[in-house]
């Protein structure tokens, strides 16, 4: 009994001793790693900072403009080229049909508006507004009129 207890005690002492040693060693190792990571983070932050400056430099409008002129066949947007979602035909129009010249029913498509460069500026400014009433609107008007 006493002997067993002694062995158990001895065993526990060794285990606890080894455990403590391992833990303290591990802590030391992690602390080293921690400070290494800290300085790595600092380095990365500095790199990010420099890259931020470079990003801003590369985003210089003058540079982008000259690149756009070289590689893109795009021009500055003219006011006439802009349209709002309200200018689009209503949903109802898409389900309408009209008869083409052969008498076939085809889907109703609004007439495309004229290209701005084919018109004088004043005309173009007007053409950009689709002001013809939609088919749905005319039909409901007619019904109200009938009543």
């Amino acid at each position: 009994m006493t002997r067993a207890m002694t062995f158990i005690g001895l065993f526990l002492t060794i285990v606890i001793g080894a455990g403590t040693y391992w833990v303290s060693h591990e802590v030391e190792r992690l602390e080293k790693r921690y400070s290494a990571i800290q300085s790595e983070i600092l380095n990365e932050q500095e790199t990010i900072h420099v890259l931020d400056a470079e990003w801003s430099y590369l985003n210089n409008p003058q540079r982008i403009e000259s690149l756009a002129k070289t590689y893109l066949k795009l021009d500055q947007i003219a006011p006439l080229q802009m349209a709002s979602i309200d200018d689009l035909p209503e949903d109802a129009d898409l389900h309408q049909y009209r008869l083409d010249k052969f008498g076939e029913a085809v889907a109703f498509l609004p007439v495309p508006r004229a290209r701005p460069d084919e018109l004088a500026p004043d005309e173009a400014a007007e053409a950009m507004i689709i002001n013809a009433p939609s088919l749905a609107a005319t039909r409901s008007d007619a019904q109200e009129g009938g009543q």
Partner: peptide
């Protein structure tokens, strides 16, 4: 305590969209 952050000598200046327009480089 010991989390370090990169702090430059002078703060950055950014435009209204956050684009960097003045910064400190090492």
């Amino acid at each position: 305590s010991d989390t370090r952050e990169l702090k430059t000598e002078r703060a950055d200046i950014v435009d209204r969209n956050g684009m960097l327009i003045a910064t400190d480089l090492p």
